[in-house]
């Protein structure tokens, strides 16, 4: 499994998404596959009962088990649920992007993920570093940061530093804040200052970047874990792998899985997705009723509610910008003035 990569990639993904999307949803999507599963994968004790799967890799990434949480199909299901229940395009799209990124990032360890589940349980893995969750949390940390897992996290840190504009406060206020009502809610209801909001936005960057170095220092000093830069390392851990089928079987599984997933996604879009999508208005910060959009300077006249360029092409209804889910009308009216 990847460690800091999941936090760091969320900023890059938001920076490269060309439509309005919630950063918090991308971050949540990047975490979701491991949020409910990682504790049980490492094992835990409660009221004298201990739980630890016999084969951590099979439980975490396989089927039967919780491996479905690391599949693109699960991301589609979650996005549709969010679109249906919370009526937010920005959150649905963000969750989908984040969850898919998590699944693809985890393809690089020795176990990989079932990319085309439920059509095939074939695992896709590059085997760059050893999957070692069966060694417990600390054993996993020592193995990951004693191998090319460290290089993988540093790669994502370098990518993020190359995309440094996504870390600037101006990017946060221009692109991140206007795309998600959650930030406005936090500012108004929790009375968060600008510094607090920017710190909150930067929190997972700092946490992700710093824990690369903290865990590496810990592994090299406390655990005395030898650094192994070879592909599939480290050599000193009992590496978990999955059975590799023949090339023909691999190709046929891939063809079947890819075709099945594409067809299912297309049918789901036609049957459910597009109706939910078009029924859900894009989030806008300003609510003005009875005023032509051109006069109000609303989306549709090319200018966003914060004065920036609007990327969604407007709300589609002249003079009426629909409320986003969970937004207080008064707060919007106030922000329009």
């Amino acid at each position: 499994m990847s460690w800091a990569a999941h936090e760091l990639e969320s900023y890059i993904l938001h920076g490269h998404t060309k439509t309005k999307v919630s950063y918090l949803a991308i971050l949540l999507g990047c975490f979701l596959p491991d949020m409910g599963t990682k504790g049980t994968v490492y094992g835990f004790s409660i009221f004298g009962y201990s739980f630890k799967p016999e084969h951590a890799w099979d439980y975490h990434r396989g089927w039967p088990g919780v491996g479905f949480t690391h599949t693109p199909m699960w991301g589609v299901v979650l996005a549709l649920l969010v679109l249906w229940l919370f009526k937010s395009r920005e959150w649905a799209l963000g969750l989908l992007i984040g969850q898919w990124a998590h699944a693809l990032t985890d393809c690089f360890d020795s176990v990989g993920v079932m990319l085309f589940f439920p059509f095939t349980t074939q695992h896709y893995s590059t085997g760059m570093w050893a999957y070692a969750a069966q060694e417990g949390r600390y054993g996993d940390a020592a193995a990951y940061y004693g191998s090319l897992g460290l290089a993988w996290d540093l790669f994502w840190l370098a990518m993020l530093l190359l995309n440094w504009r996504t870390l600037r406060p101006s990017y946060f206020f221009d692109k991140v804040y206007p795309a998600d009502p959650a930030w406005g809610w936090m500012r108004r209801r929790l009375r968060m200052s600008d510094r607090f909001l920017v710190a909150l936005y930067h929190a997972y960057f700092l946490y992700g970047a710093c824990r690369i170095f903290a865990w590496t220092i810990w592994a090299q000093t406390s655990e005395d874990a030898p650094m192994d830069w070879t592909w599939g390392g480290p050599y000193w851990v009992d590496k978990a792998t999955v059975d590799h089928p023949s090339a023909l079987e691999f190709a046929s599984n891939t063809l079947l899985g890819l075709t099945g997933l594409l067809v299912l996604c297309w049918v789901t879009w036609l049957a459910v997705g597009r109706r939910l999508w078009w029924r859900t208005p894009p989030f806008t910060q300003v609510e003005v009723v009875g005023v032509p959009a051109v006069e109000a300077g609303l989306p549709g006249d090319g200018a966003g509610p914060d004065g920036g360029a609007d990327q969604d092409g407007g709300a589609g209804v002249e003079g009426v910008v629909p409320l986003a889910a969970g937004e207080a009308p008064g707060a919007k009216a106030q922000s329009a003035t």
């Binding site: 949020m35 710190a199 929190a203 946490y207 710093c210 824990r211 903290a214 220092i217 000093t221």
Partner: peptide, 28 residues
């Protein structure tokens, strides 16, 4: 705090909720 404290105290600081909370508290 995150690098030095994390290297010493590991999971007492370096979890997905505590780590960011420490970062925000330190900044503010």
């Amino acid at each position: 705090i995150l690098v030095a404290g994390g290297a010493v105290f590991t999971r007492n600081i370096l979890t997905f909720n505590r780590g960011p909370a420490v970062a925000v508290a330190a900044i503010v």
